[in-house]
Computed example of a mutant assay.
Amino acid sequence: MVKPLHGTDGGCYSLSLKTGWTGPWSKIIKMLKHLRDEGGGGDLRSFFPIRVGDGSNNSFWHDVWKGDQPLAVSFPRIYALDIHRRVSIRDRVMVGWSVDSLRRLPRGGIEHTQWEELSELLRDFHLTSFPDRLGWSIDVSDSFSVSSARFIIDRALLGTGGCEIT
């Protein structure tokens, strides 16, 4: 019911709702906005890091799957040279990482440095037969739980002082 009313992401990534909409989901989105803006909760997506499996569901350049930002941001000169910018991780790995996927060879300086750094980052990367999934960075189990979500919400809204809720 959420997707038809608020879009395919339910407003979770954009943290936006249709104007004038009220109800439980609007309260959830408002809480997420509060956590992001005032509670120190950061970007909601940062709690759900991508765990690459077969690489078919995530963008090589645009999703955060290696490091703490998209590869297009980390390696902008190589991104600008790439022929296939809208490629999945799986497709990029299957084709291979070589200068053949670039419009031209990297020139010296920053282009060469970024090429070497990106090549090193990808050198030992391998896909698995499992599907890609989202992790849960709040809990050591890497699996979402209501109690860990409650912990982060309470910590953001109530601070670290005061009485403990069990």
Rank of each mutant, 00 (worst) to 15 (best):
K27M: 12
G20L: 01
S26D: 07
Y79T: 00
D37L: 13
I152H: 02
K30V: 12
A80H: 03
G20R: 03
H34P: 02
L81F: 01
D54W: 04
V146H: 04
S101W: 10
Y13I: 14
P70L: 04
D9N: 12
K30C: 13
T19Q: 13
D43W: 05
L158F: 05
K27R: 15
G109M: 11
L71D: 03
P49S: 11
R104Q: 03
L81Q: 03
W136F: 01
G67W: 08
D132Y: 02
S98P: 12
D142L: 07
G23K: 04
S16P: 02
A149V: 08
N57R: 13
D9T: 15
I50Q: 08
V52C: 07
G53I: 01
S26N: 11
D142W: 07
P70E: 05
Y79H: 01
E120R: 11
R103H: 01
N58K: 09
L44Q: 02
D9V: 09
R104T: 09
E120N: 07
R36H: 04
S56D: 03
G20Y: 10
G109K: 15
D154M: 06
L134S: 06
R36Q: 06
V64D: 04
S143Y: 10
D43R: 03
S59P: 14
P24V: 06
L15A: 10
L127Y: 02
G40T: 11
M1Q: 14
D9Q: 09
P76Q: 00
P49I: 04
D124P: 08
D63G: 07
L158G: 12
S141T: 10
T113L: 10
T19R: 12
L17V: 07
P106S: 00
D124F: 00
R155I: 02
G39S: 05
D124M: 01
C12R: 11
L105N: 13
D139H: 04
V2E: 06
D9P: 05
Y13V: 15
S119Q: 10
V95H: 14
K3H: 12
R36G: 00
S141I: 05
K18E: 15
V87K: 07
D63N: 14
H62L: 14
S137F: 07
L71E: 05
R150Q: 10
S141N: 09
W136A: 02
K3M: 14
M94W: 13
V146L: 05
M1E: 14
I28W: 05
F60C: 08
K30G: 15
Q114T: 00
G39R: 05
G53Q: 03
A149S: 05
P70N: 03
D100A: 12
P70W: 04
R107G: 14
I165V: 15
G159V: 02
H6C: 15
V87D: 14
I152P: 00
H126T: 14
I29D: 03
R133T: 08
Y13D: 13
M31H: 05
D37Y: 07
F125W: 04
D54I: 02
E116M: 06
C12M: 13
F125C: 06
F151P: 00
L5E: 15
W25C: 06
P49Q: 13
G10F: 13
T113N: 13
G11E: 09
S56E: 07
L121E: 13
F47D: 05
S141M: 07
E111N: 04
L121D: 06
A149L: 06
